[in-house]
Amino acid sequence: MNLNRRQALALSAGAVAFATTGFTALPANAAAEETAKRITEFAGGKEPGTGKITLTAPEIAENGNTVPISVKVESAMSGDDMVESVLILADGNPNPDVATFNFTAMSGVAEATTRMRLAKTQTVYAVAKMADGSTFVDKKEVKVTIGGCGG
């Protein structure tokens, strides 16, 4: 009673039609360009550095509608060594903006988790801005898979 190839093909094609969650993707280039622009703006025209910030996201999201992401920035969270905000962007969504986390000395640790929508497989960016104006970036590619079927 195994699934044969023809059945499986028909199922996966059908699944795509049902899988449209109302979150359509932009053509690849436009979204990626828009994302690069946002990062440069946020970083005050400079290239953000690397290190200090870690973005955690699943390699494969079981469903693009609810993808958990976390950011953590190394910082004493006092004086000059202070994270002010972290910008989250996704370069394959209709609009790259996802969220901005704002931290204070009362945060104690610059760490936060949320859940986001991903229209398709794409790269998620997290850019941290420190009190001294320096910026740091990390990114992760998240594969968004299409379910086989099952309603």
Binding site: N2, L3, S12, E62, T145, I146, G147, G148, C149
Partner: peptide
């Protein structure tokens, strides 16, 4: 087909 993947599922 239990345990197999249909595409991602």
């Amino acid at each position: 087909s239990m345990g197999k993947h249909i595409r991602a599922d």
